[in-house]
């Protein structure tokens, strides 16, 4: 993978929101690459800046109150954050397409689903005839597994179930065969029973479009199944990046380890799952130094955690962590394992 050029490079992105309570530093100095064809997972607890960071790529955050204060987003030798409104519009939905979290509210209630899918194509191709747009939209609905697509085409969103709506959103996203697909918690709002189906449709659609995908979720299982690489975010920052297997088997950040340890495991029976103590950090007055230090077991009263922001360092090949004390991770894992009476080290299984 290292041989090819990244498709999209995010560099030093910082985003803030002005709120009555103060300035929310939602995303701080975030950098990552997206390789052609890969699926990049982003995990992190709610409020860690996942949505804001990807929405900023296409300047989809509301301004005001939002502000992109720093950073570059390079795509095809251009900085997307410097594009004019017109250039940006040409790109949205054509080069970068999004599937949002809540399919119930993401479709316009007073327009037919078909018209909304067709619009995704007609805004980028003014020569496209209504008939052709219609034919292609019905085709897209079929691709995403909506039965009776020609009937469904003419229906309104409220006549669709949640799962069907999300399929329609996926159809809309792949309408222009975008090289980059961004899915922000695409199944979180759906019934558990249909989550897997919709995920399958998304994966399939990605393959057909030959797109690279950024998949945001807080479902680590989904990441393990779908993603090639994973980014872990905490308090608006990236704390760990790497190949999914490597990160999951050998977490190099106490937060990542905490996330995984708090997952129920199938292979062993445990009474108590170790949870991460404490509250998510305030984004208005974030902790100094490492944002995770107030909740971190590795800190052990050390001042560097409190004072210095740990940079992302390459721990092993292509595996980065933003922790001052990665060398103590093994020890930490053993300690916690002993406490809960389960072996939490995940060997190469």
């Amino acid at each position: 993978m290292s041989a090819t050029e990244p498709l999209l490079e995010v560099d030093g992105l910082s985003v803030e929101f002005d709120t009555p309570e103060g300035v929310v530093k939602a995303v701080r100095d975030v950098s990552w690459n997206l390789m052609p064809g890969e699926t990049l997972g982003i995990v992190g607890e709610s409020g860690s800046g996942k949505s804001v960071s990807v929405m900023s790529l296409m300047k989809l955050i509301p301004t005001p109150p939002g502000r992109i204060v720093a950073g570059e987003v390079r795509f095809r030798d251009r900085d997307l954050l410097k594009l004019s409104r017109f250039q940006l519009r040409k790109l949205r939905g054509k080069d970068l397409a999004m599937v949002f979290q809540d399919p119930m509210s993401s479709l316009n209630p007073v327009q037919t689903v078909g018209r909304q899918i067709a619009e995704a194509m007609t805004v980028h191709d003014s020569k496209l005839s209504d008939n052709e747009a219609r034919r292609r939209s019905i085709e897209l609905l079929e691709v995403v597994g909506v039965p009776q697509a020609d009937v469904r085409f003419k229906q309104y969103p409220h006549q669709f179930s949640g799962g069907m709506r999300q399929r329609a959103m996926i159809a809309m996203a792949i309408a222009n065969r975008p090289p980059i697909l961004i899915a922000d918690e695409p199944t979180t709002a759906l019934d558990v029973t249909i989550q897997a189906q919709v995920m399958e449709v998304l994966k399939d659609a990605q393959k057909k479009a030959g797109a690279a995908m950024v998949l945001i979720t807080h479902d680590l299982g989904l990441i393990a199944e779908m993603a090639d690489r994973v980014i872990v975010m905490y308090g608006g920052r990236v704390v760990e990046v790497g190949d999914v297997r490597t990160v999951f088997h050998n977490p190099q950040h106490p937060y990542t380890f905490g996330l995984m340890a708090s997952l129920p495991r199938l292979d062993t029976q445990t009474e108590t799952l170790p949870t991460i103590p404490g509250q998510p950090p305030s984004l208005i007055t974030p902790p100094t130094g490492c944002a995770f230090h107030p909740r971190c077991r590795l800190k052990r009263d050390r001042l560097d955690c409190e004072q210095d922001v740990p940079p992302l360092r390459e721990v092993t090949t292509e595996h980065f962590s933003a922790c001052h004390h990665t060398d103590e991770m093994d020890q930490l894992i053993e300690e916690v394992s002993a406490e809960v009476g389960t072996d939490l080290t995940r060997g190469e299984s």
């Binding site: 949205r92 939905g93 397409a97 999004m98 949002f100 509210s105 995704a120 805004v123 980028h124 809309m172």
Partner: peptide, 15 residues
């Protein structure tokens, strides 16, 4: 402020 307006922007519809 609704999500579907954001969807329209994400599709590249003009302001």
């Amino acid at each position: 402020e609704q999500d579907y307006v954001r969807t329209a922007f994400a599709k590249g519809v003009a302001n």
